[in-house]
Design a protein around this nucleic acid. Sequence first.
DNA 1: AAATTAATGTAACCCTTGTTACACAAATTA
DNA 2: TAATTTGTGTAACAAGGGTTACATTAATTT
Lengths: 209, 209
Amino acid sequence: MIQELKDNYGHLFENNLLNEINQVGTFKEVPEGFKMISIGEYVKAMPLLISGAIKILREDNDGDELLLYFLEKGDTCAMTLTCCLGQTKSEIKAIAETDAKLIMIPIQKMEEWSAKYKSWRNFVFESYHNRLNEMLDTIDSIAFLKMDERLLKYLIEKARVSEDGFIRNTHQEIAYELHTSRVVISRLLKKLENLGEIKLHRNYITLLK
Amino acid sequence: MIQELKDNYGHLFENNLLNEINQVGTFKEVPEGFKMISIGEYVKAMPLLISGAIKILREDNDGDELLLYFLEKGDTCAMTLTCCLGQTKSEIKAIAETDAKLIMIPIQKMEEWSAKYKSWRNFVFESYHNRLNEMLDTIDSIAFLKMDERLLKYLIEKARVSEDGFIRNTHQEIAYELHTSRVVISRLLKKLENLGEIKLHRNYITLLK
DNA sequence: AAATTAATGTAACCCTTGTTACACAAATTA
DNA sequence: TAATTTGTGTAACAAGGGTTACATTAATTT
């Protein structure tokens, strides 16, 4: 049994299921920036996240993107879940935000385990629930917040999922993920710095509060 | 067996499950405008929609609202699904867009049927999938579209779920659902009318294309 | 019918965000 | 070290959308 499986999912799954996961799952490490899946691709396996963070992005036809949310340790991809059943294409893009470790499960097991293990069903339902709530949170941000508030919220999220609390992004990268322009981001970042919320550096940002 | 159950869900569920639904479910009719649930309330039952449409709205702390999507015949509420399991409060508001007929299922059956019926599991997974996609669509609209495009898309949706294809709303009501102001909506509606997309009347709008 | 209320049209103005343009500094490459 | 690339700061301006104010017209109430 992989120790990391036990550590992260031992409290969630019964032993029989853990053993099955251990047998059919493959351990995988991906580096920061690794593209896990793009829009329109078919899903081949379902990831169980062990460590690190995966960012989930939406893209429009012009290639404009928008950060939806992060997957972290103990999470799985709800999109994958249904793609498996319906054999439909991915609606989202997933990129490793940090180095990450995962266990990949062949999608055929999904249906089987849903019938067999209550803990698996609960895990899947729970995942859907979490993802829906994260989507709601994203909608709240873009519908109800102004750009400066969205930016601060974004920075706090970014700092949380990064290992050292630093936000290692250029203004241009931030602009892409919030679907706005670099100039707007630079302007608002400077404003936040003047308010004492953050400290700006070349290539990274630190939160002060 | 209620005929409406067979008509709408007969192809989805096996006979044993249909019989169970028939036994424990209660038939319910609600009038247009009926508030099914508010944010913060606990879910008591799970609805299976037979006819009509239910609009699902998100609200912020100031009471500002935003239309997320519509539930229609054959749909169920994905939010309800997880609320049942986790006993958490509703994150959304649901209001009957038209007169609607539903079958209400006691939430205790959820878990039981998930273990027992493959068709039920598939239905639940499918519902989640649909709802996630609708949320993505909503996000696309507010993130990538300008207000005039959002408005037109909204009008097309509204016309689709209404029985006669008319949009029976005041400009103020539309403004609430798109989270903008009445003046903005009146302005853009007039523009759409000048473009030949719609025809404006007092208290209702018709699509021309 | 007169008065009131509800719905719509529109002008004028302001703020936020997006765009263009360019300066400058830090990092990288030649 | 010089040249180039990358990242940031900022000004000036444009556009979209939100706000206030008020007029007009249709429906409802008295």
